[in-house]
């Protein structure tokens, strides 16, 4: 993880504040985020007169090759047209050679805030399923995220769920080749932490498992057994033992929500009966209440 020095920041401000003739159409407003890949600013698009989020990549990625790669990957990101993925509007390279890209400015609660909130678990899991859908869609298009974490997911005012930072997913390869491990401890897969280059969708599955664990145990609640088992399977040390796809992970979460058996938690007869009884608890309570009343009436009649 690398930050940007004060000097570089001043240089960036100067570059971004330059006139449109210099090729920069975005006016920096304020810093709104910082991570291993660079710094995110709230910026104003002078051409379209709207607010956007502008991410300047870290200095370690600021090579000519990285600039080319950014353009290439921006085309991939532009192909990710999904309601759960934040669209990338523009890419470019600052006069000093540092690449940047511009995306929709997303407001709303971060997923880590949602996890800590008193929101019902089912609602949190609905959000998680939509993150899985967006991730699965990107995987189907051959794009890995590699830095999925609650901070990269926003839930908007209309209930929309948006995954950020898909646009630079593959740019991380450059950093990894340079010997820098990119990702977030606690969320990145073991093979990613080891700096292995042959990552696949299961690296993101690991991160999804960590997100699920945080969502299901956030706010001080203890995670239900089935959900804990699903998260454990998604986060297995060996990627062969994880879910093969985001869809199969989502299917298990949906099964949990429907009180159906989940593949991550084999159940014996007693546990199966307990799950079925819980699933039909209201019906059982009503029928049980009726039979109990009948017994009471019968007993009263006899006495």
């Amino acid at each position: 993880m690398s930050g940007i020095s004060d000097g570089a920041l001043e240089h960036l401000r100067a570059a971004l504040s330059a006139t449109p003739e210099a090729g920069v159409r975005y006016e920096l407003v304020r810093e709104i985020g910082r991570g291993g890949m660079g710094v995110v600013y709230l910026a104003r698009d002078r051409e379209l007169e709207r607010e956007v989020a502008l991410k300047v990549l870290a200095a370690s990625l600021s090579t000519k090759e990285a600039g080319e790669r950014l353009r290439r990957e921006a085309r991939i990101a532009a192909g990710l047209e999904h309601p759960g993925i934040v669209p990338v509007h523009d890419v470019g390279v600052l006069p000093d050679g540092r690449p940047f890209y511009v995306m929709k400015h997303v407001t709303g609660a971060r997923l880590d805030e949602i996890a800590r909130s008193p929101m019902p678990l089912r609602a949190k899991l609905d959000v998680f399923l939509r993150v899985c859908e967006a991730t699965g869609y990107a995987h189907a298009r051959g794009v890995l995220h590699r830095d999925l974490k609650p901070e990269n997911v926003r839930v908007g005012g209309f209930g929309e769920v948006l995954v950020l930072d898909f646009g630079v997913a593959k740019l991380m390869e450059a950093a990894e080749r340079a010997g820098t491990v990119v990702g977030t401890p606690g969320f990145m897969a073991p093979e990613q932490a080891r700096g292995e280059s042959d990552l696949d969708a299961r690296a993101d599955i690991h991160a999804l498992g960590a997100i699920l664990r945080e969502l299901s145990s956030g706010g001080g609640q203890s995670a239900p057994r089935a959900l804990a088992a699903i998260a454990r399977k998604a986060m297995a040390q060996s990627r062969e033992e994880r879910y093969a796809s985001a869809e199969s992970l989502a299917s298990d979460v949906r099964a949990y929500l429907a009180d159906d058996p989940v593949s991550a938690l084999p159940e014996n007869f007693a546990r199966r009966m307990a799950r079925i009884a819980y699933r039909h608890r209201v019906a059982l309570a009503l029928v049980g209440g009726y039979l109990l009343l009948r017994l009471v009436v019968l007993f009263a009649a006899k006495t």
């Binding site: 209201v282 019906a283 009503l286 029928v287 209440g289 009726y290 009343l293 009948r294 009436v297 009263a300 009649a301």
Partner: peptide, 16 residues
């Protein structure tokens, strides 16, 4: 009691 209590619970079962 013999009719109303079970009858109301049966209604609840059908409602469910």
């Amino acid at each position: 009691w013999e009719i109303m209590l079970p009858g109301s619970l049966l209604g609840a079962i059908v409602g469910y």
